[in-house]
Simulated assay, not measured.
Amino acid sequence: MSRSVLYYFAPQSPWTYLGHARLAALLRQSRREVSVLPADLGKVFPVSGGLPLPKRAPQRQAYRLVELKRFAEHLGVPLNVQPRYFPVDGNPAALLITAVQQRDGTDAAMALAGAILAACWAQERDIANEGTLLELLAECDLPDERLDQSREAGTQARYDANTQAAIDAGIFGAPTYIVDGEMFWGQDRLDFVARKLGL
């Protein structure tokens, strides 16, 4: 069995944002590797019973805002519960993270993912905008050409493979962590992830 923690997420997910830094800290403490696996929730939801946010019942949408505020305050994480650029297409950012993972490795992909998540949920930036993505590459000391490479067929194929792997694993939302074959859905399950990692 792989020693790598499988990390399935969407870069436009506030729950992924709330858990990202904590997951990174757990990985450092446990000295475990991670597979950075952005996936397309637009393809995951239809086969898993999920709905995109605008199609959810008003009660669910309202409670989501309560929970986001509650968790952000509890964790001490800055969060705009209704950011200026949301809903937003997460695919360009996901493809960019995928391109960086392929060429610069896991640490760079994790750093870029964290920067993209914060850009959306704390900094009121449009993560579907080419200019914003170029700024984020620069802020992470990554080369501009990664943006062009994110549009290549090989990058799309890897992103599609991540998405299919998520579907095959029975994943239905983001973030999802798989540790030694056991699935944990949601940043509010990171305490259980820590126990599974022996922390």
Rank of each mutant, 00 (worst) to 15 (best):
S2R: 15
Y7T: 06
Y8D: 01
F9N: 14
F9S: 13
F9W: 15
A10M: 15
Q12H: 13
Q12T: 14
P14A: 07
W15M: 10
L18I: 14
G19K: 03
A21M: 07
R22T: 11
L23V: 07
A25R: 15
L27E: 10
R28H: 14
R28Y: 04
Q29I: 09
R31Q: 15
E33P: 05
V36T: 10
P38L: 03
A39E: 08
D40C: 09
G42L: 08
K43H: 14
K43G: 12
V44P: 00
V47C: 03
V47P: 00
L51G: 00
L51K: 13
L51I: 00
P54L: 09
P54M: 01
K55L: 13
P58Q: 10
P58R: 11
R60A: 13
R60E: 12
A62M: 09
Y63K: 09
R64F: 01
A72F: 05
A72V: 06
E73S: 12
G76F: 07
G76L: 03
P78K: 03
P83Q: 07
R84H: 10
Y85V: 00
F86R: 09
V88Q: 01
G90Q: 06
A93L: 01
A93T: 04
A99F: 09
Q101E: 13
Q102N: 06
R103N: 13
G105H: 00
T106P: 00
A109K: 05
L112K: 02
A113W: 04
G114V: 07
G114Y: 05
I116K: 02
I116F: 05
A118C: 07
A118I: 00
C120W: 00
C120R: 10
E124N: 11
A128S: 15
A128I: 03
A128W: 01
N129L: 08
E130I: 13
E130H: 14
G131Q: 12
L133D: 03
L136G: 01
A138C: 08
R146N: 15
D148N: 13
Q149I: 13
S150A: 15
E152G: 13
G154C: 02
A157T: 12
A157P: 08
A157I: 11
Y159F: 15
Y159G: 04
A161C: 10
N162C: 10
N162E: 05
A165S: 15
A165N: 13
A165G: 13
A166W: 02
A166Y: 07
A166E: 05
G170V: 01
I171K: 08
I171A: 03
T176I: 06
I178D: 04
V179E: 07
D180L: 05
D180K: 09
M183R: 12
W185S: 09
D188P: 02
L190C: 08
D191K: 07
F192Y: 12
V193S: 02
A194V: 10
A194T: 08
R195M: 10
R195A: 08
K196P: 00
G198Y: 05
G198P: 09
L199V: 14
